[in-house]
Amino acid sequence: MATGGRRGAAAAPLLVAVAALLLGAAGHLYPGEVCPGMDIRNNLTRLHELENCSVIEGHLQILLMFKTRPEDFRDLSFPKLIMITDYLLLFRVYGLESLKDLFPNLTVIRGSRLFFNYALVIFEMVHLKELGLYNLMNITRGSVRIEKNNELCYLATIDWSRILDSVEDNYIVLNKDDNEECGDICPGTAKGKTNCPATVINGQFVERCWTHSHCQKVCPTICKSHGCTAEGLCCHSECLGNCSQPDDPTKCVACRNFYLDGRCVETCPPPYYHFQDWRCVNFSFCQDLHHKCKNSRRQGCHQYVIHNNKCIPECPSGYTMNSSNLLCTPCLGPCPKVCHLLEGEKTIDSVTSAQELRGCTVINGSLIINIRGGNNLAAELEANLGLIEEISGYLKIRRSYALVSLSFFRKLRLIRGETLEIGNYSFYALDNQNLRQLWDWSKHNLTITQGKLFFHYNPKLCLSEIHKMEEVSGTKGRQERNDIALKTNGDQASCENELLKFSYIRTSFDKI
């Protein structure tokens, strides 16, 4: 039985969820670079991206490699990797027998973001014989899940209580170790020597080791999670996991709180800001991140802002960003909400898709409305799209047979046209069989910064309504002859009103 693990408890099935942008060198404390989270699957090609990484700022997932063999891993080693800020997950990587050479110096898994409450997941690794993470000293947050690894031993010899604050939620089941077939031998045991430290858990006094050649490092209890030197002297209180010299914040392997210019500090002093819960960055760093993602459509890219001495992905609820200094300031009234469309555009074809934009005031991208039916549609669209004030790209209304009016965009005031449909149009209306009105132009103002209007096959939309939009939106004169079809717009509506004058002759039985 794995020490510190839980057996036999019912657990939810383990679901495996399925960018080499360097964020800056980590400095003297770390020998390499800070790398983003990685999802490495199918083959070993991307694994080489770990070569210079000291910190993975995010998670590391290595999974679904069915053609790899043990010899493929023999020359692979990433000794610079010290810390993973989120979680480490391995799933069905064939041929991998140990992690001792792959990650010989991995010391800390912070667990800032977890995989279903777990910071370390080893699942269905069919050839893994031992973990071998002999320098792993601290899992700051989260638990361990090690399950269905039929060859995995050296679990009962690990004292997880020396690595985690609590072992109650560890789930370590259905491994070879369960069948008591392992016969784990710690260093020196074969020669009758006791080389590794022994600890007591559940009444068992057991030597602690990761492999037959690597003991588990056990520091004096007084050192807590700070770690200790090879001689057993406690590291500085700002260290986490390990250090090369005692009581020196510049000799830590990793930091308990924050890293700044080669030393570990309790908090980031001005003019620095907390970033990702582990390091200090200056304003320029946060500003660069903001600008890199301002026009990016890459998933996970955030326009970072500053709030409460932190550089964070977005302002919290009730705050909006001051564009001059990136500071989050309290909103006066309802907060603006910028919604970034991942692929640059979004099609609204149902109430469900409209709900995804609920509360958005600025759309960074283009909207395509293609709704053919739905219950209580006008009210639903207004509830979900009615706060949109600005669209950076274009607005396209296409084959939306259920629409009679666009009044559900009740606050839309600006279409920038930074991206144009077919390279020309910022407003595009095609084949809307029941569209009769755009907006009530006596109450609604709309500016279209650039781009043209396109109207074709809107049989109940009168040309007068379209011409009014040209005047109000500032697009009059931009359109070419064929942009607004004269014969297919309003051709099934009563669009022309003329005053009919009647004269009559009164007659009676005795007068003409």
Rank of each mutant, 00 (worst) to 15 (best):
L50N: 01
C252S: 00
H48I: 07
C264F: 01
L128A: 05
L81M: 11
F73R: 05
G58L: 00
I84M: 01
I56K: 00
L90S: 01
V281L: 02
C243D: 02
C186P: 14
E238S: 08
T199N: 11
L131M: 02
P336N: 11
D184E: 07
T229N: 14
D178M: 15
P336I: 14
Q303K: 04
E181N: 10
P249F: 02
G232S: 13
L164W: 04
D184T: 04
F258N: 02
K217R: 11
L128C: 02
E97L: 05
E314V: 04
I84G: 00
P220F: 02
G142K: 01
L102Q: 01
Y304S: 03
E130C: 02
D101P: 12
V265M: 07
T140V: 11
E151R: 07
C239K: 00
C153F: 01
I56S: 01
T320L: 06
G142F: 01
V121G: 02
L96V: 09
Q216L: 12
Y30K: 01
N150C: 04
L50D: 00
L155H: 15
H307R: 03
D177H: 15
T211L: 13
H226G: 12
E147S: 13
I109Y: 00
C315Q: 04
I40P: 00
G333Y: 11
T211D: 10
A198D: 11
V218P: 09
L326N: 13
L152V: 04
M137H: 13
V126L: 15
L133Y: 02
R208Q: 15
F123I: 15
V253Q: 05
D165R: 12
R256N: 11
Y154M: 10
Q61N: 04
D248I: 03
S225W: 15
S324G: 10
K148G: 04
S296F: 13
C215G: 11
P187E: 14
C293I: 07
Y94G: 05
L131W: 01
F205P: 07
L174A: 13
Y259D: 14
S143Q: 13
S161R: 10
E49L: 09
Y118P: 00
S161K: 07
E207R: 09
L128E: 01
H226E: 06
E181H: 02
D261L: 08
H302K: 01
L174V: 15
K80I: 05
R208K: 14
S324R: 12
R110A: 08
G183K: 10
K191H: 05
C234F: 02
Y304F: 15
E168A: 09
S161W: 04
R297P: 09
T211F: 09
Q287I: 12
L260F: 06
V55L: 03
N138D: 11
M83C: 09
S244F: 14
D86Y: 01
L128I: 08
G300M: 06
I122E: 01
C186R: 02
L114Q: 10
V173R: 12
M83L: 12
L260I: 13
C215Y: 09
G300K: 15
L136C: 04
C280L: 01
D261N: 09
F103P: 00
C209A: 08
E71L: 05
G188Y: 08
Y134F: 13
G262C: 02
Y272L: 15
C53R: 00
P316L: 03
R297M: 09
F275L: 06
C209Q: 02
D86H: 15
D178H: 14
S324E: 05
S213A: 04
I158F: 07
V93H: 12
A119Y: 00
F205G: 12
N52A: 08
P220W: 00
D39L: 06
T229Q: 07
V167H: 08
K80S: 09
Y319P: 01
S166R: 06
P313N: 04
R279K: 06
L29V: 06
I158D: 05
C315E: 03
Y273I: 03
L164D: 12
G333S: 05
D165A: 06
L88Q: 00
I185W: 15
S317L: 08
I109C: 00
V206S: 14
N195I: 10
C182F: 15
L326T: 04
R297G: 09
Q204Y: 04
L102I: 12
Y118S: 09
C182Q: 13
C252L: 00
Q204C: 02
K310D: 14
C153V: 01
C153K: 10
P31T: 12
C264R: 00
M38C: 02
A190Y: 10
D288A: 12
N117P: 04
G111R: 00
T107F: 05
G232P: 07
K193L: 06
L50W: 02
S213G: 12
N325S: 15
N149L: 00
S237E: 14
I82C: 06
N52V: 15
D288V: 09
I109P: 00
V218N: 09
K129N: 06
Q245T: 05
P316G: 02
L120D: 00
C243Q: 00
I163P: 00
L114V: 08
R297N: 08
L102F: 13
P79T: 06
R41Q: 07
D159H: 13
S143N: 11
L240I: 09
L131A: 14
Q276F: 12
S284I: 03
I306T: 05
F91I: 09
H48F: 07
N135Y: 02
S98C: 05
L332G: 15
C301N: 02
T189N: 09
P330Y: 15
M83R: 00
S323V: 14
C182M: 15
S213Q: 14
S237P: 11
D261E: 02
P36F: 12
R92S: 06
N43I: 04
N175R: 09
V34R: 05
P269A: 11
N138E: 05
